[in-house]
Lab assay of single mutants.
Amino acid sequence: MGFKLLSKLLVYLTASIMAIASPLAFSVDSSGEYPTVSEIPVGEVRLYQIADGVWSHIATQSFDGAVYPSNGLIVRDGDELLLIDTAWGAKNTAALLAEIEKQIGLPVTRAVSTHFHDDRVGGVDVLRAAGVATYASPSTRRLAEVEGNEIPTHSLEGLSSSGDAVRFGPVELFYPGAAHSTDNLIVYVPSASVLYGGCAIYELSRTSAGNVADADLAEWPTSIERIQQHYPEAQFVIPGHGLPGGLDLLKHTTNVVKAHTNRSVVE
């Protein structure tokens, strides 16, 4: 069995187990497998329904001669939608809004960016022009300005110390501490036991640490421990890039980060 097929099978099995364990909360999309990078042309966006009122959005972007996937989250909030992270750029984010209108038909009224990198804030200006209120932590807003990236308009308070959590509509926002970046936030959907790890969490097929220019490698494993301790009931975990899975993604990420750190020390 090929690795790609095995990865998709694991996603399907995880979703099936969740649907059985929580039949009222989960209505997993039966329309197909989780979209992969090879299936999404740059400039297009796919939506994948995880649970009743919960979707991931998947886009792709060219970077350094390669094409990478990027995940975000959409959560229903009454007759409105909360968006977590842009679709990595203005063109993708405009396509995301169009796809949401086509498939869901509810307005996106608020959006949260989970850290300051372009795959999370690139497209904020498109959201703002569409009347979406954009939010991020003060740290993310400051770092985005320093980096020359787009800056969300509103500040999220109460997320300055490791372990801080605040309720934001249908989700809980959690600051686990520094990891992929010093400002990275985690998003949890309690009604569906869905954990969105953003770039602080890796997919299972990833074996290298990737972009760690703004990471705190020493603190990252401790931050992941905080996530595990705060959300032990999480059933569906979405990484910032690639295929979702279960809580095993947290341990896998820790292993990859520690291996990278150990290699760096040896070198």
Rank of each mutant, 00 (worst) to 15 (best):
G105D: 13
L96A: 09
F168L: 07
S139V: 10
E80R: 13
E99V: 15
V256F: 04
S7L: 06
E80W: 11
V28S: 06
I58M: 15
A66G: 10
L127H: 02
G169F: 04
P170W: 04
Y34M: 12
L81G: 02
Y188K: 00
T207K: 08
S30G: 11
W220P: 00
D29M: 12
A200V: 09
G242D: 04
T153Y: 15
T36A: 07
D29G: 08
N262R: 08
E203G: 10
L81C: 05
E233P: 03
E157V: 15
F3H: 15
A25W: 09
L106E: 13
P232W: 13
G177I: 01
H252V: 04
K251W: 08
V67Q: 09
L204N: 10
R46P: 03
A165C: 11
A19Y: 11
V265G: 13
K4H: 08
I224M: 12
T114P: 01
D183P: 00
H252E: 03
A234H: 01
V124W: 04
I20Q: 10
L81D: 00
Q229C: 04
F3A: 09
H260E: 09
R128K: 14
P35S: 07
Y188G: 01
V28M: 09
P244Q: 05
G245D: 07
Q49Y: 07
Y231L: 04
A213E: 12
G245V: 02
S193R: 12
D77Y: 12
E33T: 11
F174A: 02
G78F: 10
P239S: 03
R128H: 12
V67R: 12
R141I: 11
D164W: 06
A133C: 13
L250A: 03
G78Q: 10
T254L: 09
S70V: 05
G148P: 04
V45G: 03
A130R: 14
V124R: 03
Y135A: 01
V166W: 07
S208M: 09
D85L: 00
K251V: 06
T36P: 06
R76D: 10
G177K: 02
G32Y: 15
L106R: 12
S193N: 09
N92P: 05
L6S: 12
H252D: 01
E225T: 06
G53K: 08
V166Q: 13
V126C: 05
D125F: 12
A25V: 06
P107M: 13
I74R: 02
S30E: 08
V166I: 10
A213S: 15
N262Q: 05
T109Y: 08
S16W: 07
A215D: 13
I201A: 04
G78I: 10
G2P: 09
H260G: 08
L250R: 00
V146H: 10
H57W: 01
S208R: 11
V124L: 13
P152G: 04
L24E: 08
V257W: 02
P170T: 09
T140L: 03
L5Q: 12
T93I: 02
H241F: 00
N149E: 10
T109D: 14
N184D: 03
K8C: 08
S181V: 03
A25T: 08
D85K: 00
A90M: 14
T207Q: 09
S193Q: 09
G246M: 11
S30A: 11
R110Y: 13
R120E: 04
G122T: 14
E145V: 10
F3S: 11
P190W: 05
D52W: 12
A200R: 03
A19E: 13
S137M: 13
V45C: 03
A25Y: 06
L83N: 01
L6W: 07
A192C: 04
S16H: 05
P170V: 08
G131K: 13
V67A: 07
M1W: 05
A94W: 13
I17L: 06
D164A: 11
G246E: 11
P152Y: 01
S62V: 13
N92R: 11
H57T: 06
G105N: 06
E39G: 08
L96G: 02
G163D: 12
R206L: 12
T182L: 11
N71W: 00
T114A: 02
L9F: 10
Q229K: 14
W220T: 00
S223M: 02
Y48P: 05
A218Q: 15
E44V: 10
L106D: 13
L5K: 08
A209M: 07
E99K: 13
I224T: 04
H252A: 07
T254Y: 12
A218D: 10
N71H: 01
T254C: 13
I84K: 02
V75G: 02
H180C: 00
A144L: 13
R110E: 08
R110D: 11
L247D: 06
L9S: 07
G72R: 01
D29L: 09
L47R: 01
S22T: 13
A136T: 04
L10Q: 13
A59Q: 10
D119F: 00
R226P: 04
G122F: 04
C199H: 01
V194N: 00
R226M: 08
P176N: 00
A21T: 14
L97F: 05
S56H: 07
Q49G: 12
V54A: 10
S27P: 07
L156I: 06
H252G: 03
P239M: 00
G198S: 05
A165F: 15
G2M: 10
P190K: 05
A15F: 07
I238N: 01
V237Q: 00
E225R: 12
A215L: 10
K258T: 08
A178Q: 12
V166E: 08
V265L: 09
R120F: 02
H252M: 03
S139F: 02
G210W: 04
A129S: 14
Q228C: 05
Y135W: 07
I227M: 15
K102Q: 13
S137R: 13
A133W: 12
N71I: 03
I238H: 02
G122Q: 14
A87G: 11
Y68H: 07
K251G: 08
L195N: 00
M1L: 04
A234N: 03
P138L: 12
S264L: 07
R110H: 09
I151P: 04
L24G: 08
E39D: 07
E147L: 12
K91D: 15
I227T: 12
P239V: 03
A200Q: 03
T140Y: 04
K4G: 04
D119H: 01
F116L: 04
L159A: 02
F168C: 03
V108R: 02
A136Y: 02
Y188R: 00
I224P: 00
I50H: 15
V121W: 01
P239T: 04
S30I: 12
E219W: 05
D85M: 00
E101S: 13
S22H: 14
V112R: 03
S27M: 07
K251L: 05
S181E: 01
T222S: 11
L6D: 08
A66L: 11
R76I: 10
K8I: 15
P232K: 14
T60K: 11
P35T: 06
D214W: 10
E44K: 10
G240E: 03
P190H: 05
T109P: 10
A129H: 15
Q49R: 09
A66V: 09
I40Q: 11
E233W: 12
G72I: 00
I50L: 10
G43I: 03
I151D: 02
I17Y: 08
L106P: 04
F168E: 03
V166N: 07
T93W: 00
D164T: 15
Q229V: 10
G246L: 04
D183L: 01
G2Q: 09
G131P: 04
N262K: 06
G131V: 04
T109N: 15
S205D: 10
A209W: 13
R120K: 07
K251Y: 15
L13D: 04
